[in-house]
Write a protein that binds this DNA or RNA. Structure first.
Lengths: 270, 270
DNA sequence: CTTGCGCCTGACGTTACGTGAGGTGGTATG
DNA sequence: CATACCACCTCACGTAACGTCAGGCGCAAG
């Protein structure tokens, strides 16, 4: 029946926590050992060891000291402890998902940076911003764009995503490089050709026309117009444009010049 | 060439960050907008929007504001940015591993709590503490115990672990229940029989004897003795005993009484 | 003239401790 | 006996990234 006691430093060493931490737990009424009446020194006993292990265990599960304090009184775990565990579980799962998203974004970014020697900062930011909320973008798009196009717009595997990004990146590079040149410039033509092929991998001409119709907003449906406007605003808020307004205006003009004939051509066929 | 500007609240709304956060970034020299000379109001411009997106992106990757500040000056990402990303990556991977360990522990605990109606707190703490550092325990054991036994002692799949724990749990329950009864009591006998079978699933009689020899410490090898002592201390520090000293003493006596005959019996066979 | 709005600065609260500073009782050494 | 040192005590500030008041200013409407 040995009644072993420890001074605070002994206790700290034998449990592996710091003296300061023990002070803190005492201060916060989480673990209050007996005191030497005269000198005020803390005296830890076996029972405190068990309590401390309980604390460490709950901390390891990711619980806050406030939660822990709440579960320290009863001698057996009650039902509320299961609830707490379940809560912790879902919290941890969420955390892990966030980490997974960030990790994928990092890996994709490193990949891009390694392959392209000089990457424009604005473009990279835009891509990363886009990665941050791919899911949210997909959610938003669901009300506006057809399901089968969405599926192609948001590829599942990281590999395909990386190809996607590589292409966007080189496209923006060329926009920046050629901005200001006339539409009939051969390199501009080449750029637009490539871009068109890229788009066509994701959709087809008819769907594209549909999309253009939707976003041109010239049908009288007020409610729908509202919805589409907020959609565009949301996307703009989530993903910043990687090109300047000047470049954007130029690009828009180029696309109109480029698409015009194609449009009519298709129209003629029908 | 419209030169759009925003007040702080407009800017906050259109980017989705709080006014206080913008104040904070200004204070910390991370994002300092122009000022209205007279009233001192902050004036945000398009350029600030891009900068803020850059900040948000790096934050999303898990970087600290200090790191972010460091990468805010140059207009293109330099090589040090890749290094930072790599660093972040390994940090996130570590975090995720911790989360995985905690999640598995939670799931195993919930499983136990659901199957056993009343779980003793001390036993549960002991199990959870053990889960926290399974890897470390395994590392420690490597210097002392034979590899093939280690493999059986530390099962890989969560399922087997849960079976393991269930058994330990019921065993401790029975120890607590029968403590004090004589060795020839039928229920005690049953308990010891079950325990013996449990042990035999992990090892065999010869290895068990070896283990007993090792831990009895009666060979003169000082150095080895030292190693084994520190091993035992480490394990005791990591995993608290879920039973009282009284129960432990009783159990030890029961085991000696139980093993004695078996020992001799085997000895006689050789 | 008062009220209210949007903005400003300053300051304290948050979590789980780390890191001193300055004071006390008990012991080893000169 | 004086002194140094040790282990302990309490008090208090610092950390990261903001949230949340509190008090004050310029400007517009009632």
């Amino acid at each position: 029946m040995k009644n072993e006691t420890f001074s605070i430093s002994e206790f700290a060493k034998s449990t592996g926590v710091s003296v300061r931490t023990l002070h803190y737990y005492d201060e916060k009424d989480i673990l209050k050992p007996k005191r030497d009446e005269y000198r005020g020194h803390r005296i830890y006993e076996k029972e405190d060891m068990i309590q401390l292990h309980k604390i460490m265990t709950m901390k390891f599960l990711g619980m806050s000291l406030d939660d822990i304090k709440h579960h320290m009184q009863p001698d057996t775990f009650d039902l509320s402890f299961i609830d707490t565990l379940r809560l912790q579980e879902s919290k941890l799962i969420k955390d892990r998902e966030q980490i997974d998203i960030a990790l994928e974004a990092i890996q994709r970014t490193v990949h891009l940076l390694e392959n392209e020697k000089e990457v424009d900062q604005a473009v990279l930011i835009s891509l990363l911003a886009s990665m941050q909320n791919e899911r949210k973008q997909e959610e938003l798009a669901k009300g506006i764009i057809k399901d089968d196009i969405i599926k192609k717009m948001f590829p599942q595997t990281a590999k395909v995503k990386m190809l996607f990004e590589q292409r966007l990146l080189t496209f923006y590079k060329r926009v920046r490089k050629h901005c200001g040149k006339p539409a009939n410039h051969p390199e501009v033509q080449q750029m637009l050709d490539d871009f068109y092929r890229f788009i066509m991998e994701v959709t087809d001409v008819n769907s594209l026309k549909e999309l253009a119709d939707i976003f041109s907003l010239d049908m009288g449906d007020k409610e729908n117009e509202e919805r589409i406007n907020t959609y565009i605003q949301e996307i703009e808020r989530l993903v910043p444009t990687p090109i300047t307004e000047e470049e954007e205006a130029w690009l828009q003009q180029m696309i109109i010049d480029y698409m015009g004939p194609l449009w009519d051509e298709e129209e003629g066929e029908n």
